[in-house]
């Protein structure tokens, strides 16, 4: 599945849908208020942050326990993997929470391979939505 091998019908469908939606939204005057978007983001961040650490700890403990059982090295791998797992959980939490709280990007090495250029797509998307809304508002007030 290379990029150029993918049939463009999907791309075409995408642009068509996008345009149709734009016209529809303009007709209906549907614009999302910034406050609502921001509040939704905060809600989700709070829900996500804690679970990541717990899951990291649990996964590390499980892997460490099983490896110890297998290699007969109790308790050393358990300790090591609990530390690693909790660290991974904290990294995941930081990735979710860092930008919205500090307003700055995480250092590249802490972002993991995946998010290096995009930032956190989840928050990036909400941010771009907020920006879009204010831009559209500006434009419409200029037109008047």
């Amino acid at each position: 599945m290379r990029k150029n091998q993918r049939p463009d019908p999907l791309d075409k469908l995408d642009t068509q849908l996008r345009e149709a939606r734009k016209i529809q939204d303009q007709k209906a005057g549907l614009l999302e208020p910034e406050e609502r978007v921001a509040r939704r983001l905060a809600f989700r961040l709070a829900g996500r942050a804690g679970v990541e650490i717990v899951a990291g700890f649990g996964f590390g403990a499980a892997v460490g326990w099983l490896l110890d059982e297998w290699l007969g090295t109790r308790p050393w791998l358990l300790i090591v993997f609990i530390l690693l797992g909790t660290t991974a959980g904290m990294m995941n939490t930081l990735r979710v929470v860092w930008k919205p709280i500090t307003g700055q990007d995480l250092p590249t090495w802490a972002r993991g391979g995946r998010l290096s250029k995009l930032g956190n797509p989840e928050t990036a998307r909400e941010e771009s939505k907020v920006a879009n809304v204010s831009r559209l508002r500006e434009r419409s007030s200029n037109d008047d």
Partner: peptide
């Protein structure tokens, strides 16, 4: 190592 673990933590979290 941490990245690999954090990948496997995904389905759990």
């Amino acid at each position: 190592v941490i990245e690999v673990i954090s990948y496997f933590v995904r389905p759990i979290s």
